[in-house]
Amino acid sequence: MTTVAVSERVLRWAIDRTADPIALQQKFPKLPEWLSGESQPTLRQLENFAVATSVPLGYLFLSEPPEERLPIHLFRTLDGKHVTRPSPGLLETVRMMERRQAWMRDYLVERGQEPLSFVGSASAASDPGDIARAMRKTLGIDAGWAKKQSTWEIALRALQRKMENVGILVVVNGIVGNNTRRKLDVKEFRGFVLVDEYAPLVFVNGADAKGAQMFTLAHELAHIWFGKSAAFDLRELQPANDELEQKCDRAAAEFLVPAEELRSVWDQMKHEARPYQMIARHFKVSELVIARRALDLALISREDFLEFYRGYVSRERDSQDQDHVGGNFYLTQHLRISRRFAEAVVRSVKEGRTLYDEAYRLTGLYGTSFERYAQRLDTGE
């Protein structure tokens, strides 16, 4: 049987990319022999190894490991705690979103779409409060927009719809594509934004607690105003030690919870048994956002915030299913694909401008799954 000579360095690089090297060796018992050169894998074994390590098969024929870099900057909150190499999940997700964005940009330009005036409209000299007001004005909401929703979870979905309505692609996903075996790591990144004057795209790590997702979404919205693509971990909902990140953070905080109103409400409710919960009901944001804003305004200490933050995130992650929305596969796709993007792809297919094979690759849905999802889009579900 024909075997393939593979560089030891390339093999070790592929192994290092996996989350569970022990499980990998159990799946490929001869892996130590491949590394030592005692034996070599067959082509079929190498193909299976490529799938197991999420490595393009062609990379395994290189003499040296490829250098993989994120096309955008990854801001890390804690100094000296940066990741030396992005995970395969993050790399693949960013590349997937870049492909969608490029397609959407071409689609919009062909249809005569004008550039979005708000993209890059802020500068380093802009006041975060002014940016927050500009974001609300563009989205067509007022300072008390969230209070009009029945719950903060509904307010979160309303914000996503408002963003898509003005031309921003919003994707929320906790896995790589539709592969439930490949979880995205919240410790690595909470989200990223790809800025484009026609099709800006924000990605929220759906594996994160939903209470934190609203703050991430607002932070990404501010990035679009500054016109800067980036990924960020927002560890403990804190920005990196970077001027741009801190301005985005302040604009996001003011966008969600105006400082003046919070100070007024805080004085009335701070002595209640569960002040964060009561104030969250008033603003229709999560308790986590309220605690984070209270820290900003020096209404609570950092120690108080961290104690609440860790307990809240632990409770919420235990209670929610990150990979489903009401157990409905097709509703989940609205988040994983971006409803605005999906509608454009389906429309293009019907017009004969996009082939089904390309539509399948762009959406990650194939055959009858794509057809059924397209039908649901048509009916407004």
Rank of each mutant, 00 (worst) to 15 (best):
G120C: 05
A222M: 12
V257C: 06
F49K: 00
E245C: 14
D127R: 03
L237R: 09
V345M: 03
L299N: 09
G364Y: 08
R105E: 07
N48P: 01
A207M: 07
E260T: 10
I141R: 10
P66L: 14
Y276C: 09
M269G: 02
D242R: 14
V176N: 07
M135L: 15
G227V: 06
Q320E: 15
Y107W: 09
G177I: 08
V193P: 08
A259M: 09
N48E: 03
V349T: 06
K27I: 04
L335T: 00
R250C: 03
V166P: 12
T84F: 07
R235E: 11
L60V: 01
S301G: 15
R315Y: 14
G89E: 06
N205T: 05
A251G: 12
G167S: 13
L74H: 14
A23P: 06
F61P: 08
L35S: 12
Q25R: 15
C248M: 07
R281V: 02
I72K: 11
F232E: 07
H219C: 03
L169A: 15
G89H: 05
S369H: 10
G352V: 06
I279M: 15
I175A: 04
N165K: 15
V176S: 07
L116C: 09
K247E: 03
D321G: 01
S319W: 08
A207T: 07
L35G: 13
H271G: 01
F305A: 02
A240D: 07
R292V: 04
G311I: 08
G89T: 03
K148G: 00
W34A: 12
E358C: 01
S348T: 00
S150Y: 08
F341A: 09
T216M: 00
Q40C: 08
G80R: 14
V204N: 05
M214T: 02
K183I: 11
F49Q: 00
R95K: 15
D304H: 07
R347M: 01
L217R: 02
K27Y: 04
I300L: 13
T42H: 02
L262K: 12
G112N: 01
L335S: 02
E64N: 09
P239S: 05
Q238R: 15
G352H: 10
T332C: 00
G327C: 09
G211M: 01
R17N: 13
F28Y: 11
Q101V: 01
G120Y: 00
K228V: 13
W152C: 00
A102Y: 04
R99L: 10
L355M: 08
K27N: 11
G174R: 00
T138V: 15
T77I: 06
Q45H: 02
